[in-house]
Design a protein around this nucleic acid. Structure first.
Lengths: 149, 149
DNA sequence: CAAGCACTTTACGTTAACGTAAAGCTCGTC
DNA sequence: GACGAGCTTTACGTTAACGTAAAGTGCTTG
């Protein structure tokens, strides 16, 4: 897979104490089942901007949410560059000029169109999988009551 | 994007004459808006196996369908290796042994789980996009009736 | 027959998204 | 004070999925 095929349902975060308002890189990494390297890389790519305490990175709620959105975007096949594009425009929104805002709307419409196509792809892919699944089960059944093979 | 962000809705194929039963690499490439290089690469990766007529590749309906499925898989973020895995097991199905078939069912279940998560991701992502969209429009409105800038 | 077009093979290049290794700080604890 | 755990930076390595360039083949069209 280009994106994570196996687990990581961004689940643990809801279960953990939400009180302490900030996280170390290791905590975040465990939460989302990524490596610290990944998180540092996202920072380098302009997707995160944690505070520093001494030399250590301190992540707050905002950062956690961003990471969550980033990973979700990745699972949907968006590149980090695309994700950054939206995220940065979102940040610059309150004082962005009209041109920027229209551009943002354009991008959003684009992403949305993409999502719709993915929905259709999923629908079709499901049918294909069902089909293969059924055939496989049928062959298995025939193997069961016929000779083994 | 990792997968094509813009057009290529695998649309043209339905519109074109379906009669002539085989295609050149260039025809296929235009149909699906990919390059011949891509198609040759997929062959090299074991996803396609066109006939040869002299030294030229001849693609038939089966190959066209495979390419279609492959590209759909790609849009959903599957790697070529994963796609090949399913495709090859599908081909080996009729005379596959039970162990292989069970393995195939496992893989299928895995893919399906993946699709379900993507559905949820899409739902959430849609809501985020709606949110950003609304905010942007609101700012634009306030710009319209207040000062520009 | 030269030109052009579509195809072929071979092979090196490129990009994204990290992995991995090396070397060093900083803290608590045994 | 030696140690390990967890953090840091720097930098080179890796993989997937093609892109691109070079050089050749085969047809058909002016």
């Amino acid at each position: 897979m280009t994106q994570p095929t196996t687990p990581a349902n961004e689940a643990n975060q809801e279960a953990l104490p939400r009180q302490h308002r900030h996280y170390t890189i290791g905590e975040l990494a465990r939460m989302f089942e990524v490596t610290p390297r990944t998180i540092r890389f996202y920072e380098q790519e302009g997707l995160l901007a944690p505070r520093r305490e001494g030399q250590k990175r301190i992540y707050r709620e905002k950062d956690r949410v961003r990471l969550k959105l980033t990973l979700r975007g990745k699972r949907l096949g968006f590149s980090l560059a695309e994700i950054r594009e939206v995220v940065m425009m979102y940040d610059a929104m309150p004082d962005g000029n009209a041109r920027q805002l229209w551009r943002l709307l354009e991008i959003l419409a684009d992403k949305r169109a993409n999502l719709e196509r993915q929905l259709e792809d999923i629908r079709l892919m499901r049918m294909e999988l069902d089909d293969v699944d059924n055939r496989a089960r049928e062959v298995l059944r025939s193997l069961g009551q016929g000779q083994e093979g």
